[in-house]
Each structure stands twice: as C-alpha cells, then as structure tokens.
C-alpha cells in the first residue's frame, strides 16, 4: 500500500520535473538574444563556431530532439557558461547555494522554535490579553515588508548602536578557505586562524539576516498553529477526553498537541518556497553571497544561462522539499492516507 503511494508520488515528481525542464528549455527561445549563445553561454561566437555548435547542440533537428539533447546536457552537468564570468554555471551555483541553504535553514528552525510555542500559547489562552497580544504582533509582523524591516534594523542596530555588522558572512580579517561552503564547517576545517574569534564573527554576521528572514515565517507559523489548535480543541474527542476525567494539561498534551501539530509538517513545505523568495531579498540587502543575490545580479546583467540554471535549481529544491514534507505528512497522519 505504502509502496504504491510512494510510487505514485515519484511518478508525480517525474512529471513535475519534465514540465519544469520544458519550461526552462522554452526560456532559451523566449529570452532575447541568439539561441546558441543562450544555450552555451559563449559570447562573441565566430560564424564557423556557430555552425559547429549548431550541429553539436542538435539545433538542426526537431524541437523534440533538441529538448532531449538539452536534458542529456543537464544530466551530464554541462549547464553552459555564465555570460558574466565565463565560468561553468553549475560550479558557480555550487559556490553560492550553501550560503542560502545555511541562512534559510537557520531561519526555518528559528521560525519553528518560536512560532509553534507562541501559537499554542495563544490558542490555549484564547481571548485573553496574552492571545490578543501574540495575535496582534503576528498580524503586524505578517504585514511588514521584509526589505523595509531589514533597512530599519540595519539603521538601528548597525549604524546607530554599532552592535552588528551590516553585510557579508564573515569579518574581512579572517581568511577562511572555502571547502564545504557552510561557514561554520569551513571555520572548523580551517587551520591557521583563531577559530573562536572567527566563529564569533560569523555568528554576529548571521544574526541579523536570520532574524529578519525568520520574521515572516514565524508570524505565519504562529497564525497557522493557533488556528489549527483552536480547530482541534473544538473536536468531539477533546470533549470526550475531558468527560473521561483527564486534567487540562493531559488533554492538551495527549490529544490536542499531537493532532494540532500534524498539519505543521505540510505547512513547513509550503513555507519553504516563501522562505527562499524572502531569502533572495534578504541576501540582496545584506550582501549575503547566496543564490538569491547571484540570481538578481544575473538579471541585471541579462545573464540568461545563469537565470535559467538558478530557476531550475531553486524550483527543484522547493519541489523536492514540498514532496518530502507531503510524504512525511502522509506517513504521520493516518487520516491523510488515501491509498
């Protein structure tokens, strides 16, 4: 049963990936400029080169053949060159993606750690001043434009008070060789520096972007958990449990909490796409060398191979996380199983 479900999900995943690659492939034709240079990322192509490239890319064949060739190149890791740097795009993505993953995962953890307890607290003490305070703050935080909040925080904490650095991932004094791309792992692996001081600097650089990025998902999580918990508390099995003589904490823990937190798994998947979008904005403001800033720069530079590759990677990431959380949700929640 469960295998059949997984197979269906995998089939769906394959279908979604085919649609995604068709979309990205068609962008080659939609973007202005020469098709051959859009596909390869080469600039200043001579006419002879143009001819040979056209045959090697399969451009003289049907669209269908071209699409298959395109997929073959994607699988081979031959994603073309970046217009701006003339480096392989895949290599550039490998350099910038870990920074985004780092920032986004810390923000996601923070939003779960703060959002779930606050949401539960608001639901349990419904209509008290605490609930009104938490819900009000969540609504306010939910409406704040993230780039404006970031600017205000930079003005306050970095420029006025001077507590936190304004941009980058690490102080310029530290020379940490890039090995994994994750800053703390790199600091651990580095040998010739003061690791404690470097880690402290990295933490200070990380603090403000993470808090800013976490603000929106946290508020969404508070609203979602509160709503979900209130829904559960209205169910009949809660009344039954109460009538059976369980105390309030027992009812809340055994019956309320477990059922209310089930949909949160799915919500995490849905939140992930918003998180990545907001991460792009945060990265631009804090000059965080992640995939978001890289992608926005590529748009300024009309760097079409990079835009395509960035879109493909970010969307695949979001789709995979979505699929994973959906499968987890189905495994945890018997009611969601429609085998």
């Amino acid at each position: 049963m469960i295998l059949r479900y997984l197979a269906r999900r995998l089939f769906l995943l394959g279908f979604v990936f085919v649609a995604l690659t068709v979309f990205v492939f068609s962008l080659n034709y939609l973007f202005p400029g020469d098709l051959v240079s859009n596909l390869t990322g080469l600039r200043n192509i001579t006419p002879e080169q143009h001819q040979t490239l056209q045959t090697s890319l399969g451009l003289d064949q049907s669209l269908w053949q071209q699409y298959i060739e395109y997929n073959r190149r994607l699988l081979d890791g031959n994603w073309g060159l970046s217009f701006a740097s003339q480096q392989p795009v895949l290599q550039e993505i490998g350099r910038v993606l870990p920074a985004t993953l780092e920032l986004a995962s810390y923000a996601l953890c923070l939003s779960l750690l703060a959002g779930i307890p606050l949401g539960l607290l608001a639901a349990v003490r419904k209509d008290s001043w605490l609930d009104k305070f938490i819900s009000g703050m969540a609504l306010v935080g939910y409406s704040l434009p993230v780039f404006w909040l970031a600017l205000i925080c930079i003005m306050l904490f970095s420029l006025q008070l001077g507590w936190l650095p304004t941009s980058g991932r690490l102080g310029v004094l530290f020379e940490v060789p890039t090995q994994t791309g994750f800053i703390f792992a790199d600091i651990l692996l580095a040998t010739e520096i003061d690791r404690m001081a470097a880690a402290q600097s990295a933490f200070l650089h990380l603090l403000l972007p993470t808090l800013i990025l976490a603000s929106y998902p946290t508020n969404v999580m508070i609203r979602f958990v509160r709503h979900s918990m209130l829904d559960v508390l209205e169910q009949n099995y809660i009344k039954t449990a109460r009538a059976k003589g369980l105390s309030r904490p027992q009812v809340l823990y055994r019956h309320g909490l477990r059922n209310a937190l089930l949909p949160v798994t799915r919500q995490v998947g849905l939140q992930f796409s918003t998180l990545i979008t907001l991460a792009m904005l945060t990265e631009v403001i804090f000059s965080w060398p992640g995939i978001g800033q890289w992608l926005i720069d590529s748009i300024y530079q009309r760097n079409y191979p990079s835009i395509q590759a960035g879109l493909l990677v970010v969307s695949s990431l979001v789709i995979c996380v979505n699929m994973l959380t959906e499968i987890l949700h189905t495994l945890f929640n018997p009611l969601a199983r429609k085998f």
């Binding site: 279908f15 796409s273 970010v314 979505n322």
Partner: peptide, 20 residues
C-alpha cells in the same frame, strides 16, 4: 498537477523570471 507545479514556484521568483 500543472497547477501544483506552478504553486510550488514562489510567486516573486516567477515574477522575476517573467520580468527577465
């Protein structure tokens, strides 16, 4: 399923691609 695909791509990212 096509809709699910479109829903998973963040709206701002989609807008950025269209603007590109």
């Amino acid at each position: 399923h096509l809709l699910d695909l479109a829903l998973t791509i963040p709206s701002l990212l989609l807008a950025i691609v269209i603007v590109a």
